[in-house]
Write a protein that binds this DNA or RNA. Sequence first.
DNA 1: AATGCAATCGAGAACGGTTTGCAACTGGCG
DNA 2: CGCCAGTTGCAAACCGTTCTCGATTGCATT
Lengths: 150, 150
Amino acid sequence: MVARMTYDDDSGRVTAMEEALRQEGVRLTRQRIALLQVLGEADDHPDANELHRRAQEVDATVSLATVYRTLTVLEDKGIVQRHAFEGAPARFETADAPHHDHIIDLDTHAVIEFTSPEIERLQKEIARKHGFEVVSHRLELYCRRLPTKS
Amino acid sequence: MVARMTYDDDSGRVTAMEEALRQEGVRLTRQRIALLQVLGEADDHPDANELHRRAQEVDATVSLATVYRTLTVLEDKGIVQRHAFEGAPARFETADAPHHDHIIDLDTHAVIEFTSPEIERLQKEIARKHGFEVVSHRLELYCRRLPTKS
DNA sequence: AATGCAATCGAGAACGGTTTGCAACTGGCG
DNA sequence: CGCCAGTTGCAAACCGTTCTCGATTGCATT
């Protein structure tokens, strides 16, 4: 009861995801289940090391190599997204939200998500003008907090 | 006469840049002059290795370490810009043009430059709405050529 | 032109994030 | 409940980039 309070909200979703993965031929090992749980609970953008740290709290046998290997598998299956921000190790998030770009706070390294259908539209238009079609894109704003009026 | 035809067009610009650099306290070594020449002649977006290869044709003593060191210096002085595209070594270009973003051809790895004041404006607006000011940004469109009508 | 010295150099070792080779282990179908 | 391809931990390899160190050199100053 006490132990289960931690991930009550996500447990249903994770199990459904697990089912879907098994269907796709991905074997459900202890280590992968641990990582899936950690990813499900994360509301930030952790890097591989941090995910390893968190996963080990769930299952101490999880190695860093397996974290990387599993992240690659999950990325291929469209479960997670990988972001390589400027001069920093890759950071990961679950790919449940449709699509968004990122503001990176240069001071705190926090990541804020945003969407702009208008920018999206302009991107496609620009690509088409040059004879291209957009396969994927990357839009990152490296920012500093504006001084707040007191 | 024959030997000099290669960089007739750029030689004036390079010398002016050299003068400006000396003024800023950057020592003009043989190796740096070679790299500056190579950068001035390049109209693509070479990586450090390629720049090293080209610089060695001008001055065989240029080492890869010096290429990296000099690129960092030139970046600090605002002479070159560094771009870290997805899953590839950093690529460099002279920072003479004002500002632009990039289309990357996924098949040929060619880089096409474009500008969009409108996207620029939207970026600032979005950042401000979130309480941020944009320090720098990164917009890359990973694209494939559209089939050309025959 | 010769001197002095901090800036710069080449070579190769080190670095940090990520991937891989290998022998042991295990999920899940039959 | 046994099989075996898929998965694991560990350590070594990888790869782009940076650093260390002793030797060299640009250039300001005589």
